[in-house]
């Protein structure tokens, strides 16, 4: 910023300089975001989880599905009777819990990201079409979304899994479909409010086609609420996927998905606290981190909250 203040460098651009150059939108958002301590902590936790997820193959001490027949249900190393090779202990078939948790991070993060990207793309297209063309297209799309919202998300996901059959891919698809109405509604609402703005009319007069209007001119101005919803969507996707896994309808054993791990651990509720505590804690921490970051992003991106 300081080089702009030397008049010799760019004299023409500095007419308004005494007023102080406005910070770039990204910079402004970041400044607001950083002031929110919870959001900042959330971001750091997410960074750690992402790091674990990306490097799982190298940093996990063991293969997540390798069974050690000499070490069934060994407690974490700070307890009596522990096996020093397994920091967080082993499960009922002798698999290292720490390794499974790290690989589970990889699964959960990819579930969250994949679901949100899929749902967001479809939601943006549908919402954009509904908001831009209006008329019966809008009525049809929005009614469909209302129907989908009539069912609680987990129950809707269950219904879809009932059709597609259990499994990780189907569970992800089901959750993506369940999240769809949120993106459609948000996009439509933003598009409708943008539609009569001057820049849209100007580019229409300049001859911009429908596709260009929708995705090049209008869409960038509708992204802020979608980014917030996307972040919160990752957390609910992880939670729903874990719930489906827990019910035996999501990721199937021996995949180290956290909800599936909990489902396998259920019978040891009275005997081995570690097989139950750690996977759930991972879910909670991850979901909490994404929720904190989503809240922080909302405050930072919402113009009403500024000031």
């Amino acid at each position: 910023m300081s080089e702009n203040t030397t008049p010799s460098a760019a004299p023409a651009a500095n007419v308004a300089e005494p007023m102080g150059a406005p910070p770039s939108p990204l910079r402004e958002t970041w400044d607001y975001f950083r002031k929110n301590r919870g959001a900042y902590v959330g971001l750091i936790v997410i960074a750690i989880i992402l790091f674990l997820a990306l490097t799982a193959q190298w940093i996990a001490p063991y293969d997540p599905i390798a069974q050690d027949r000499t070490a069934f249900l060994k407690p974490p190393i700070w307890m009596d009777g522990a096996d020093p090779r397994y920091i967080l202990g082993t499960d009922a078939v002798g698999r290292d819990i720490l390794s499974r948790l790290i690989h589970g991070a990889q699964l959960s993060v990819s579930i969250g990201v994949f679901v949100v990207i899929l749902s967001m793309i479809a939601g943006i297209v549908l919402g954009m079409v509904a908001g831009y063309f209006r008329g019966w297209v809008e009525v049809g799309i929005m009614r469909l979304m209302d129907i989908m919202l009539a069912l609680p998300s987990l129950i809707m996901a269950l219904a879809i899994v009932a059709i597609l059959g259990p499994g990780l891919e189907n569970a992800m698809l089901a959750i993506a479909i369940v999240q769809l109405p949120h993106y459609v509604r948000l996009t439509r609402a933003s598009v409708v409010s943008e539609l009569n703005k001057e820049y849209v009319i100007a580019s229409q007069i300049a001859g911009a086609g429908h596709v260009r209007q929708m995705f090049v001119n209008i869409l960038p101005n509708c992204m802020a609420p979608l980014i917030v919803q996307g972040t919160l969507g990752i957390s609910s996707a992880i939670l729903d996927a874990a719930a489906l896994g827990f019910l035996g309808l999501g990721a199937q054993p021996p995949l180290p998905e956290w909800g599936t791990m909990l489902s396998e651990a259920r019978e040891f509720v009275g005997s081995a606290w570690w097989v139950i505590t750690f996977p759930g804690l991972c879910i909670l921490v991850t979901v909490l981190a994404f929720n904190l970051m989503g809240d922080g992003l909302r405050d930072a991106l919402d113009p009403k909250m500024k000031r």
Binding site: L239, A242, T277, L284
Partner: peptide, 22 residues
């Protein structure tokens, strides 16, 4: 409240059983 909102309740239920019941 935020923790409660982010809680996987199937895990929360198991924790409650583990602590209060068993």
């Amino acid at each position: 409240s935020l923790t409660g909102y982010s809680m996987p309740i199937f895990w929360w239920a198991l924790l409650l059983i583990m602590f209060f019941s068993t």
